[in-house]
Amino acid sequence: MSSSDSAYGDIHRYEPPRESMTAAVAIVLLTVVEIALVGVFTYGLISGWGVASNDGGFGNMFLGTAMAAMFVNLAFILLLYRKEFLPDVMIVKKRRRKWEDLYIREDDVDGESLTDGAGETFKRAIYPYMKR
């Protein structure tokens, strides 16, 4: 389908989501793990695991690892949700031409040839005080 067949803003392709049961179960299990990690992290903050004490900073590293695991787990949840439960939609958008990005008028797209303005340049070289 060429760009002239559809108007801007029209839906060009729409594929419904798969909505697999396996992905739903995986998202539920990952959410349970996420809640557990958030609980461990919150308990560690309240208990003061991150405060420098006799453990040599182990509690702080443990809290950092728990937080990293939380974000990685959340990334997998969002990845599964996006892949399995959101539709694949392509919308037709206007593609700008290169000369529009350079703020050039449409009649100046091709530039100037070698002889454009040669007569005016020659006149200025002969009589430099000539008005434009």
Rank of each mutant, 00 (worst) to 15 (best):
W49K: 07
G56I: 13
I46S: 09
I91T: 10
L79R: 02
A26N: 06
F85H: 03
N60W: 10
A24Q: 12
D55W: 02
N54Q: 07
Y81I: 13
G59E: 11
G48V: 11
L30S: 04
M70A: 08
L79H: 02
N60K: 09
E34C: 03
P87L: 12
E34G: 02
I91H: 00
L63R: 01
A69R: 00
E84Y: 08
M61N: 11
Y81L: 13
S47F: 07
N60V: 14
S47W: 04
G64P: 01
F41G: 06
A52L: 15
D55S: 07
A66G: 03
S47L: 11
L78S: 04
G50R: 01
V38E: 12
E34Y: 02
L29Q: 13
L63D: 05
L30K: 04
V25F: 10
L37Q: 03
I46C: 07
L63W: 03
K83S: 13
A36H: 06
L79G: 07
D88I: 13
L86T: 09
A75D: 07
L37T: 04
T42R: 03
N73H: 02
L80E: 11
V92T: 08
F85T: 08
V51F: 05
I27V: 15
V92P: 00
V72T: 05
A23E: 12
W49L: 15
N73L: 08
T31G: 03
F41Y: 13
D55H: 01
L29F: 07
M90C: 09
L29G: 04
I46N: 04
L74R: 01
N60F: 15
M61A: 14
T42S: 11
V25N: 05
E34P: 00
Y81N: 07
V33R: 06
A69T: 05
L37P: 01
M61S: 12
T42F: 09
M70C: 10
G56W: 06
D55P: 00
V32N: 09
V51D: 14
V32C: 12
F58S: 11
M90F: 06
F76V: 10
L86Y: 05
G44M: 08
G59Y: 04
V51K: 04
